[in-house]
C-alpha cells in the first residue's frame, strides 16, 4: 500500500482530469497505472507530477502507461527535438523510410497500431508508421 500512498496525489489528479478507463494496481513493487488522458496537456501534467513525486523518476516503482485520446483523423504535432520524424513502411525502425515529417509539422492519425507505433498521413500524402512518443494529439 505504500506505493499507492506515494502516488495517491497523482492518481487523484488523473481521476480529477477524467482519465478514461483509469486502472491502478500494485504488483512486485511496481505501481501500474493505465488509462487514457483527454489531452496532451493532461498527459504532460501527469508526467510532471510523477517527476515531482519521484525525483528523476529514478525509483522504477511506477509504470505510468497513460495514453492520450486520439481518434482516427486526429491532428498530431511532431514533437521531435529538432530533427525530422521518419515515417516507415512497417511499425519498426527496421521498416523502410517512406516519408519524413518535420519538427512541429502536423500529421493526421490513421490508426493507433499499438502504444509505440501509430500509422499517420503527412500533409504531402505520405502514409506510414511513426513512433508515437514523438507525436502529440492537438
Amino acid at each position: 500500500m505504500a506505493l499507492q500512498d506515494k502516488y495517491a496525489a497523482l492518481v487523484q489528479s488523473a481521476t480529477n482530469m477524467g482519465v478514461a478507463n483509469l486502472a491502478v494496481a500494485e504488483k512486485d513493487g511496481v505501481l501500474h497505472v493505465s488509462g487514457t488522458a483527454k489531452s496532451t496537456a493532461d498527459y504532460d501534467a501527469l508526467w510532471a507530477q510523477y517527476a515531482q513525486l519521484d525525483p528523476n523518476m529514478a525509483s522504477g516503482d511506477l509504470m505510468m502507461n497513460i495514453d492520450i485520446k486520439a481518434n482516427s483523423g486526429a491532428q498530431l504535432k511532431v514533437t521531435t527535438d529538432a530533427t525530422n520524424l521518419n515515417i516507415r513502411s512497417t511499425p519498426s525502425t527496421e521498416g523502410e523510410i517512406v516519408g519524413k515529417a518535420a519538427h512541429d509539422e502536423v500529421v493526421t492519425l490513421i490508426e493507433k497500431t499499438d502504444d509505440s507505433w501509430w500509422k499517420v498521413r503527412t500533409a504531402q500524402g505520405e502514409e506510414g508508421y511513426a513512433y508515437a512518443q514523438y507525436l502529440s494529439p492537438l
Binding site: V30, N56, M57, A58, G60, M63, M64, N65, I66, D67, D115, S116, A132, Q133
Partner: peptide, 9 residues
C-alpha cells in the same frame, strides 16, 4: 512506459 517496460535509471 508506452512499451510497458520497467526501468532502471
Amino acid at each position: 512506459a508506452a512499451a510497458k517496460v520497467k526501468s532502471d535509471v
